[in-house]
Design a protein around this nucleic acid. Structure first.
Lengths: 192, 192
DNA sequence: GTCTATACAATGATAGAC
DNA sequence: GTCTATCATTGTATAGAC
């Protein structure tokens, strides 16, 4: 892995987001992205990203699955499933600092405007839930309880994320996710 | 809508599934599908299906979102959110009769073997949950409770569906979904 | 008015050179 | 690691056939 690979990757991701905002996702070709990233070609683009969509999701994003899995594994032995999930959401939300909010908002707007991107987003979301459920099962949480806790945590995270990225309040994502998770937990008893 | 349209559509869907099983999804071209469906060309294929993936999901499938939305709207006034969801799952599961089990199993195997198809499946699943949540909100169920009930119902349905399509027991899907939903409800109190 | 053929653009794979 | 070049396939647009 050469010294400049990360920079090329970053330039490609930035050029892509710019062009998607200016022209729309579909109207932008991979060649245009590569060109704007510094006279590159689509060959180079596809060396860094497996497909055109992934440039948006891999952008600032580490392996979110790893983050939640590690946090759940590191939760104290006596922690309940939802306490382990809460630790996972704390770790994940910590990635999205205030300085990334503007970027996240723009990214989200692009994704919401294109059905192909919504599809990829749905898969990422399912993968996040699956990572949480797997980590919980490794703590000997029964199958259904693990899946359900993971669904709850995923719902809490994205509900909070949408508010965080969409509004002008500056509340930290960590606080939003915690409050949302608490609200969801309270809601559990009202479902009948 | 011409008299023969449904038959062309059905032949295309059947040819597609056959070829995907024989050769794999990626190794099969749209032209091959059209050819096997009776000397057609890809133009005709794309008249019936918006893209190559959709031929698998639109196949036997009506609008599942409509089914669950109607069932939830038709639930009695006093029904709790989870009772309304239970009615939705009954209606949806009724579509999958025993004679469709073999077909569903083959379909599922093809989908599990390809990441593009998994992506589409994730979107369909999210759309189903969203349809349930929307229908619940129209019954004045609060936002978070509606989303959560829908997540629970979706989890119940797919957990049951996977068992139904994957095993040799002949239990009806309706019974499997009901039992799974009950188990999930019982699990709620164990999450901490 | 439904269906089909031809032409075309863009994604993504592959092979070879620097 | 990047570039050129070529290729197959998906998916669209347009115009025509039954």
């Amino acid at each position: 892995m050469g010294r400049w690979e990360p920079d090329t990757r970053r330039r490609l991701a930035q050029a892509a987001l710019e062009l998607f905002i200016e022209q729309g996702y579909e109207a932008t070709t991979v060649n245009q992205i590569a060109e704007r990233a510094g006279g590159l070609t689509k060959t180079t683009f596809f060396r860094h990203f497996p497909d055109k969509r992934e440039v948006l999701f891999a952008a600032g994003e580490q392996a979110h699955g790893r983050i939640v899995a590690d946090a759940i594994a590191a939760a104290p032995d006596g922690a309940t499933p939802l306490q382990a999930v809460a630790a996972a959401l704390d770790a994940l939300a910590a990635v999205f600092t205030e300085e990334r909010r503007e970027f996240s908002a723009r990214l989200r707007a692009v994704i919401l405007g294109n059905s192909e991107l919504l599809e990829r987003a749905a898969l990422k979301r399912a993968a996040l839930a699956e990572a949480m459920a797997d980590a919980l099962r490794k703590r000997d949480v029964p199958d259904l309880a693990a899946s359900l806790s993971a669904d709850l945590g995923t719902r809490a995270f994205y509900t909070a994320y949408d508010q965080w990225a969409d509004t002008d309040n500056h509340e930290a994502l960590v606080d939003l996710t915690r409050r949302t998770l608490d609200e969801l937990r309270a809601t559990l008893t009202t479902l009948g």
